[in-house]
């Protein structure tokens, strides 16, 4: 229960080319301080703490750049309130770019 008071742990996964912006790493296990986390808040946190290059290819205004798909525990975030989704400890949040390759 000490995890609850110290923050939450989430797994961030990147695919479809989005990993290229994050040190080419497809999986990041992170601990977030406090309990009050939405995906929108996480996006800014990722931009400040994980993103290595070209932030404009990841974010546009206060959300992901159109063309990046987001899944929470393998469910489309469009079914979960998108940026307003409240993150639970243990969630896996996946970002897949549709904009690469072909």
């Amino acid at each position: 229960m000490s995890i609850e008071s110290n923050g939450i742990s989430v797994i961030i996964e990147l695919g479809g080319g989005a990993e290229l912006l994050f040190d080419k790493r497809k999986k990041h296990s992170v601990n977030l301080p406090g309990n009050d986390w939405t995906i929108q808040k996480l996006l800014f946190w990722m931009k400040d703490n994980l993103l290595k290059e070209r932030p404009e290819l990841f974010m546009q205004d206060d959300t992901v750049r159109p063309g990046i798909l987001v899944l929470v525990n393998d469910t489309d975030w469009e079914l979960l309130g998108e940026g307003n989704y409240k993150i639970n400890s243990g969630d896996t949040i996946m970002f897949i770019s549709t904009l690469h390759g072909g």
């Binding site: 695919g15 479809g16 080319g17 770019s97 690469h100 390759g101």
Partner: peptide, 10 residues
């Protein structure tokens, strides 16, 4: 969801 392997480098 089908876990198909594809290549996605620019």
């Amino acid at each position: 969801f089908k876990q198909l392997v594809y290549f996605s480098t620019e």
